[in-house]
Simulated scan of single mutants.
Amino acid sequence: MTTATVSQNTAQGLPPGLRSAQAAVHLPEVQEMLRRLSGHGLGIFMPHMHDDRTGDFLPLPDEVMQVEAGLEVSFRSAAEITLQAERFLPVAWLWRANAVTAAAACEMVKPAATENDRLTVKHKMSERI
């Protein structure tokens, strides 16, 4: 059994838009898009967040971005993250309002120059030991 097969059985409690996204992965045209994307090192994701109180799946609102920092995920204002391009690396994109829009980002540590003056990008790690 693949993860995709399991998702068919567990998607029943999702909101309609997210249930539709789960079903779409099985469509031949979506699988063809995924095959083509994988040639570029890309994949498909289901933009979502969770209700703080219940943990229920919710569609990701246009004004919210998923952010990973210190190996923890949070949901923050897209406008806030977009204004800090030097600090956050986009890792997921959506097509919104006829344009590519970042939907998720990882917080980065300040780049350091290497001996050949190339900047290295590193993910911000947890401060816990």
Rank of each mutant, 00 (worst) to 15 (best):
Q12N: 06
G70T: 01
W93V: 08
H26Y: 08
G17A: 10
I81P: 03
Q84R: 02
A85T: 06
S126W: 00
K110R: 14
C106T: 14
E80R: 02
V91F: 09
L60T: 00
E29H: 08
A21P: 01
I44H: 00
H40F: 14
F75V: 15
A113Q: 13
A85P: 13
R118L: 11
R36H: 07
A85F: 07
T54F: 05
Q84Y: 15
D56E: 04
H40C: 06
A69Y: 06
S77Q: 10
E107K: 04
P47R: 00
R36Y: 07
E29C: 15
P15A: 04
S126P: 10
Q31D: 12
Q22G: 09
G55V: 13
A11L: 13
V25K: 00
A92C: 10
M108C: 15
E107R: 05
H48A: 12
G41L: 03
V109K: 08
L27H: 05
T120C: 00
M33V: 15
M33G: 05
M1V: 15
R35Q: 10
T2F: 15
G41M: 03
M108P: 14
R36D: 01
A105L: 05
P90R: 02
G70L: 01
L18S: 06
A105M: 08
L14V: 09
P59E: 11
T82A: 02
V67D: 01
V30D: 02
G39W: 00
H26A: 05
L18M: 05
E29I: 14
D51S: 07
A85E: 05
Q8I: 03
W93M: 07
S20M: 13
L58M: 12
D52P: 12
H40N: 07
A112T: 11
G70I: 00
T10E: 13
A105T: 08
V91D: 04
V100M: 00
R87S: 09
G13K: 11
D52G: 05
M46Y: 08
F88Q: 03
W95V: 07
T2P: 15
T54S: 12
A113V: 15
R118H: 14
A92R: 00
Q22F: 06
D52Q: 08
T5C: 09
A92H: 09
E72V: 12
N116T: 15
T2I: 09
V73M: 10
C106S: 07
V6Q: 15
K124Q: 14
K124W: 02
S38Q: 10
A78G: 00
A104I: 04
G70A: 15
R128T: 12
Q84I: 14
T101F: 04
S7H: 07
L60Y: 00
D51Y: 04
T114L: 02
L71W: 10
L18Q: 03
V25C: 01
A21R: 03
L58V: 00
A11N: 07
F45W: 01
T5V: 01
M65H: 09
